[in-house]
Measured scan of single mutants.
Amino acid sequence: VIAMPSVRKYAREKGVDIRLVQGTGKNGRVLKEDIDAFLAGGA
């Protein structure tokens, strides 16, 4: 999974398994917005 360390930390704090999140950034990078969208109700 491609993600910046700050995004990985954010996901950990929110209790999200970053491997389950679909990245929308360049080359499938997971963004902070992707974590929020995942929490809001889905992949």
Rank of each mutant, 00 (worst) to 15 (best):
V1R: 10
V1K: 09
V1F: 07
V1I: 12
V1E: 07
V1W: 04
V1G: 07
I2N: 11
I2P: 07
I2R: 10
I2L: 06
I2M: 04
I2F: 03
I2W: 02
I2Q: 09
A3P: 05
A3I: 09
A3V: 07
A3Q: 06
A3M: 04
A3K: 05
A3G: 05
A3S: 07
A3F: 02
A3R: 05
M4A: 15
M4E: 15
M4T: 15
M4R: 15
M4D: 15
P5K: 12
P5E: 14
P5V: 10
P5M: 08
P5I: 11
P5D: 13
P5T: 09
P5Q: 11
S6A: 12
S6N: 12
S6R: 09
S6V: 08
S6Q: 09
V7G: 03
V7Q: 02
V7Y: 02
V7M: 04
V7W: 02
V7P: 03
V7I: 09
V7F: 02
R8F: 12
R8W: 12
R8L: 14
R8S: 06
R8T: 08
K9R: 13
K9V: 08
K9E: 15
K9P: 01
K9I: 09
K9M: 10
K9T: 08
K9N: 09
Y10E: 07
Y10A: 07
Y10R: 06
Y10D: 06
Y10Q: 06
Y10V: 07
Y10N: 04
A11Y: 02
A11F: 01
A11E: 01
A11L: 02
A11P: 04
A11Q: 01
A11S: 05
R12S: 14
R12G: 10
R12D: 15
R12V: 15
R12T: 15
E13P: 00
E13Y: 09
K14Y: 07
K14V: 11
K14G: 03
K14C: 10
G15V: 03
G15T: 03
G15A: 06
G15H: 08
G15K: 08
G15D: 06
V16K: 01
V16I: 10
V16Y: 01
V16G: 00
V16F: 02
D17S: 05
D17N: 09
D17G: 02
D17H: 05
D17R: 05
D17K: 04
I18T: 03
I18G: 00
I18N: 00
I18S: 01
R19F: 08
R19V: 07
R19E: 11
R19M: 11
L20S: 09
L20H: 10
L20Y: 11
L20I: 09
L20E: 12
V21D: 00
V21S: 01
V21H: 00
V21I: 12
V21M: 05
Q22S: 13
Q22L: 13
Q22M: 12
Q22F: 10
Q22T: 14
Q22G: 08
G23T: 03
G23R: 03
G23S: 04
G23K: 02
G23V: 03
G23N: 02
G23L: 02
G23H: 04
T24E: 03
T24F: 03
T24S: 13
T24G: 05
T24P: 01
T24Y: 03
T24L: 03
G25R: 02
G25D: 03
G25F: 01
G25W: 01
G25L: 02
G25H: 03
K26I: 13
K26H: 13
K26N: 10
K26W: 09
K26F: 12
K26M: 12
N27C: 12
N27F: 12
N27V: 05
N27W: 11
N27D: 14
G28T: 04
G28Y: 04
G28A: 06
G28D: 04
G28S: 06
G28K: 07
G28V: 02
G28E: 05
R29S: 13
R29T: 10
R29E: 15
R29N: 09
R29W: 10
V30T: 04
V30K: 03
V30P: 02
V30N: 00
V30W: 02
V30Q: 02
V30I: 14
V30E: 00
V30M: 03
L31G: 05
L31Q: 08
L31N: 07
L31E: 11
L31Y: 07
L31M: 12
L31H: 07
K32A: 07
K32H: 10
K32S: 06
K32Q: 08
K32N: 05
E33N: 10
E33R: 15
E33P: 08
D34C: 01
D34K: 00
D34S: 01
D34V: 00
D34Q: 01
D34A: 01
D34L: 01
D34Y: 01
D34E: 00
I35W: 00
I35L: 03
I35F: 00
I35E: 00
I35V: 10
D36N: 06
D36F: 03
D36L: 05
D36T: 05
D36Q: 04
D36I: 06
D36H: 04
A37I: 10
A37V: 09
A37N: 14
A37K: 13
A37S: 11
A37Y: 11
F38R: 04
F38M: 06
F38V: 08
F38P: 01
F38K: 04
F38T: 04
F38E: 04
L39C: 07
L39W: 07
L39D: 05
L39N: 05
L39Q: 06
A40V: 11
A40F: 10
A40K: 12
A40S: 13
A40N: 13
G41I: 13
G41V: 13
G41H: 14
G41W: 13
G41F: 11
G41A: 14
G41C: 12
G41D: 13
G41K: 14
G41R: 13
G41Q: 14
G42H: 14
G42Y: 13
G42R: 14
G42I: 15
A43N: 14
A43R: 14
A43M: 13
A43V: 14
A43Q: 14
A43P: 14
